[in-house]
Amino acid sequence: MQEIKVAVFEDNKARRELLKMLLETSEGFVCTGAFENCQHIIKNIVGCLPDVILMDIDMPGVNGIEGLKIVHTQFPQVKVLMQTIFEEEEKIFEAILAGADGYILKKTPPLKLLDAMREVLDGGAPMTPTVARQVLHLFNNKHYKNTPDNFDLTEREHEILKLLVKGLSYKMIAAECNISYATVNSHISHIYEKLHVSNAAEAVAKALGQRIV
């Protein structure tokens, strides 16, 4: 099985070293680079060729959101998993608009963090429900006023959206609904289309804001 190559962008040296150690000691993962900011992110990515980036939002110089924008422009095949804390509402909102592939709180347990990296490579959009709740009022104010309440979700789509809001991964949703991972992916694509959103964070925020679930 091919190892998942991960690059870490984190200004806190102790946390950066811990993440590097976690990756190096976890089967199926390898840390190909660990950097304190995004100042030289293009050179960094060319040098370490990651599949996934663990990106801190707050860093000196070029921060994580600017780094995310550069990655999506220059390296669209690389997945970016943002690492956030509760106090960063506006920045989380900016990351959502910039198209981050997932949103994980820094206090997420190591095993769940590894699962999130696997999931994002499988086409999922891992996120912590509390992130969506934290930015809910920002979505309501900026995006979703006057949105119709009827989104024509099927019964199955509504069920899957509820599980997504609860924070279940695609794999867990598949087990809960007794369907395949690919079927979950297909349903979630239809949910995104009907809700006019592009990722899990927006879907959860809209589901909560419009009281769909």
Results as ranks from 00 to 15, higher is better:
E10V: 05
V71K: 11
L163K: 08
I70A: 11
K43H: 13
V135T: 11
P126A: 04
K206C: 08
G33T: 01
K20P: 02
G33C: 01
V78R: 06
I42A: 07
E89F: 04
R15L: 13
H158P: 00
R133E: 14
K162N: 14
L54H: 07
A182H: 09
Y144P: 04
T84M: 12
H196A: 12
K112A: 12
T130S: 13
V184H: 11
M117P: 02
N146G: 15
M172R: 13
S26G: 06
R211Y: 08
T108N: 07
D152V: 07
Y144I: 12
I92Y: 03
E17F: 00
V30T: 12
I57Y: 03
V213W: 01
E36S: 15
G67L: 07
A116S: 14
H137I: 08
A14F: 09
E87P: 00
P109W: 02
F9E: 07
V52T: 07
Y103I: 06
I53A: 14
R211N: 14
I191D: 03
N150M: 12
F139E: 06
G33V: 01
F86L: 14
L18Q: 12
N37Q: 05
I4T: 13
P109M: 05
V131D: 06
T154Y: 12
C177I: 12
T154C: 08
E24L: 04
D115S: 11
L121T: 05
A207Q: 02
D101H: 15
C31G: 06
E157H: 10
M55I: 01
I53P: 09
L22D: 04
P76D: 09
F75P: 01
L49M: 12
M117N: 01
N146Q: 13
L208N: 04
E155Y: 12
V30W: 01
E193H: 12
R156P: 00
L168T: 00
P60T: 10
I179S: 05
I65K: 13
D58E: 14
Q210E: 14
V78N: 09
A175H: 07
